[in-house]
Design a binder for these strands. Structure first.
Lengths: 189, 189, 189, 189
DNA sequence: CATGAATGAGGGTTCATTCAT
DNA sequence: TATGAATGAACCCTCATTCAT
């Protein structure tokens, strides 16, 4: 009996995971506005199951990206402990963030969307990612590597935008542009 | 007779202009994918009138932005004639481009959209804007103000992306980020 | 003054004729349900002009075919005077009718349509063509060439239907089928 | 569990059947081009349900008529086994075909329509009905009852056309005309 | 009389969301 | 819990028809 409950719970969790994977894949192919039905189909579950696990599209989007966002936060913490120059730390972190953004393409668009249904994602970024980035920037400023005018939120939005890809503007281009933006964030004297 | 025909033509033109204005406004509020009905309603005309003037959404979008695009092109030509340092000329031009983008916000999104219906707009940019920008960059490279690696298309896409605004990331922020990106486009030695 | 009135009237008539020609052509290409605009465009006149001359689609359709219908009537009269066997006369007349129907293709469909807007056409056929045909049949019956059961209206409807062409069922097939139908209308003894 | 699934499946099937019945009725009244909404309304279901069951109009049309088409095919097979004269067999089969056509009136029009959306129906007829008819004709030709010039496809198109009814041209008339057409298909000597 | 711009009803189609099983 | 059938709002687009000039 206990076992069957455990088995059921495992099934539930498996469904949730399958949905997250399917959603991530579909978001890459069609963007975050893809039909829910496509995600259900890809995950091999019914439509109702999607709604049960993620009552709103926003919750699904958020869940899909939360893990990576948390990884980014963790990386920021780690980099702050390491004995690297603060400017270098920030650069590496931004690199990781870019990697995250261009891999899950579609997120760039999502992050800047004013669509209220994606508000949660926005909040998540504000609450988690911005402070992490801010700490790195602060250190960079203190070390004279970064212009004190630069704010974490603005920089991240900018980086997010630069990672919106399209035909003729691919990963490498985004990476290059981000690098130049960062270069432009050094203090002007 | 001529007068009445003139009056009719004036009415037609007024409608067309009203539609362009309405479309521009609606695009700002809802993006370029806004329902055609909304645009018709805002312009105070029937649905059919929109289709008469702009048989496809792409034509409407293009018409809305064509004027400003042409202004940008003209400005680039003018700046090349002026006795300013090439780097300065590019900076001023990019400023004007940013102004254009942040004013008609929604265009940033439109420019990077892969939606085939917006292909025309993309083409317009490719055919008109990119060469104009390329000429300025070339001059900047020759003068040693700009890194030869920088290409016009990539830079414009990047600037376009940086001009996708949102709450907490307003015009001023976009302007600042673009300025820093441009700073990062100076030759590294 | 009188002249200019004459000139105007001539212009009006010319428009009417152009419209009939255009409508005939468009009906052949697209059927009798073709957009009025297409007909106006083909005739080189404005939309309003079509509506002035032919307030309803039915009137236009009727006008287009009236001439040919009258020709058919005249032919029937002529054939009755000629010294041919009545059966032969009917056959020849049906031949002409078929020719008319398959040339103006789309009419077959129009003739059998229950669309109330085409009611006039139906009436025209009933009033003009049916009596003409009936006279020929009557003579044929009298001569023992035609089964007395056969009625003009039914036969004409049948012939009309057999002349609805389509891919794989072309003029020649229609002609052949009509000939066989006619053969089947001989008296059974 | 099995029961409730069974109940659901039954409901689905009932819906499907209701749709087929509604479509058949609406086709009779308005023709196969009737608005999908009307069919949905008549069946008492939502619009989406029609699209779920029959993604395209063609599929709905085909489904409506498929059963009868298959019956016709089966009848042809049966008649070939029976000890009747081939000419008689063909006549009986054509009778059944006519019955089918005049009952589902609207199909006559559908069968001759060039509308690409009805292509499937056409194909169905070509693939199923024509061979069935051809076999009967062949036997008739061999027995000297049928003119070898007659082809199945042409004959069926002709019969189909003759079964397009209208006011003043009802079932009985169609039946009579078809009989005469068939009579005209005997060998001419 | 002729013109053609404007209108808006009408019909197709998609998809988010609910809910009975 | 999971399923997926059903619903219907929302968009798209076409064209018949009117009417000011």
């Amino acid at each position: 009996m206990t076992e069957s409950i455990g088995a059921r719970q495992a099934g539930v969790r498996r469904n949730r995971e399958a949905l997250l994977a399917a959603a991530a894949a579909v978001f890459v192919e069609q963007g975050v506005q893809a039909p829910i039905r496509d995600i259900a189909g890809r995950a091999g579950v019914g439509l109702g199951t999607v709604y049960r696990h993620f009552p709103s599209r926003a919750e699904l989007v958020t869940a899909v990206y939360r893990h990576q966002i948390e990884e980014c936060v963790a990386l920021a913490d780690a980099l702050r402990q390491e004995p690297v120059a603060p400017g270098e730390a920030l650069a590496r972190w931004i690199d990781a963030f870019v990697e995250f953004l261009v891999t899950k393409h579609g997120l760039g668009v999502a992050l800047q969307s004013e669509d209220p249904s994606l508000h949660t994602l926005h909040t998540l970024m504000l609450d988690e990612l911005v402070p992490a980035c801010a700490a790195l920037i602060e250190a960079g400023v203190a070390a004279g590597d970064i212009d004190p005018e630069v704010t974490a939120y603005t920089l991240m939005r900018a980086v997010g935008n630069l990672c919106i890809l399209g035909p003729g503007y691919e990963r490498a281009h985004a990476r290059d542009m981000v690098a130049r933006l960062l270069a432009g964030c050094r203090p002007t004297r």
